[in-house]
Simulated assay, not measured.
Amino acid sequence: MELIPYFEFVLPLIFFVVAFVYSSIGLGGGSSYTALMVIVGMSTLVVPMMSLSLNLFVSTLGSYNFLRNKHGKLSIILPFLISAIPFAYLGGTLHLSKTTFLWVLLMSLIVVAVRIYFWKNAGFRLDLNHQKKSSSL
C-alpha cells in the first residue's frame, strides 16, 4: 500500500523542493531523498543508488557554484572528492535486506540528529582569506 497516491508525480516535485532548500545551504539532501523514498514504499534495492545519484547531482551543482564564486579552494575540497565519490558508490552497491537497510538508516539519522542538537562545538573554521592584516607600529 502506498502512503501517497500518485507518488510518481508528486515525488519529483518534493525532490525539487528538497534539492532547492538543501543546496541553498551547501548540502545535497541525500538523507531526505532516502527517507522520502522509504516513506512512499520504494524498493530498498533502488533507494541507495537513486538517493546517491540525486545527492551527487545537487552537490555537484552546488560545489561548482561555490568554487565559481571563489568561496573555497579546489585544493582543499579535492581530497574529499577523491575519497568520497568512489566509496559512496561502493556503499550504494551493497545489497542489504530491507530490515537491515531500515535499521542502518534509522541509526544513521539518529546519530546525525544527536550531532546536530547535542554536540554544538564540534566545528572548525578555515581561514581561506590569506590577506595579511597590517599592523601599525
Rank of each mutant, 00 (worst) to 15 (best):
I4Q: 08
P5D: 01
Y6S: 08
Y6V: 00
Y6G: 03
Y6N: 14
Y6A: 11
E8G: 05
L11N: 08
L11E: 10
I14P: 08
I14A: 08
F15L: 04
F15E: 05
F16P: 07
F20Q: 05
V21C: 09
S23V: 00
S24N: 02
I25E: 05
G26T: 03
L27F: 15
G28L: 03
G29T: 07
S31G: 10
Y33W: 01
A35M: 15
A35Q: 11
A35I: 15
I39T: 03
V40L: 00
G41R: 06
G41S: 11
M42K: 01
S43R: 05
S43F: 02
T44H: 13
T44E: 12
V46N: 07
V47S: 10
M49T: 11
M49Q: 06
M49A: 12
S51F: 01
L54G: 13
N55V: 02
N55T: 04
T60N: 05
S63H: 08
S63G: 15
N65Y: 13
F66P: 04
F66C: 03
F66W: 09
R68V: 02
R68D: 01
K70T: 07
G72S: 06
K73R: 10
L74A: 13
S75P: 03
S75I: 10
I76V: 12
P79V: 00
P79Q: 07
L81T: 11
L81M: 10
S83L: 13
S83C: 07
A84Q: 14
I85R: 06
P86V: 10
P86W: 05
Y89D: 05
L90T: 07
L90R: 10
L90P: 01
G91W: 01
G91A: 13
L94C: 10
L94H: 14
H95Q: 15
H95R: 14
H95E: 14
L96A: 14
S97F: 05
K98V: 11
T99W: 08
T99S: 14
T100S: 15
W103H: 15
L105A: 13
M107A: 12
L109I: 00
V112H: 15
V112P: 00
A113E: 12
V114Q: 03
R115I: 00
I116Y: 12
Y117P: 02
F118A: 14
W119S: 08
N121K: 15
F124D: 04
F124M: 08
R125W: 04
L126V: 01
D127E: 14
D127K: 02
D127Q: 04
H130R: 02
H130L: 07
H130I: 00
K132T: 00
S134F: 06
S135G: 09
S135A: 07
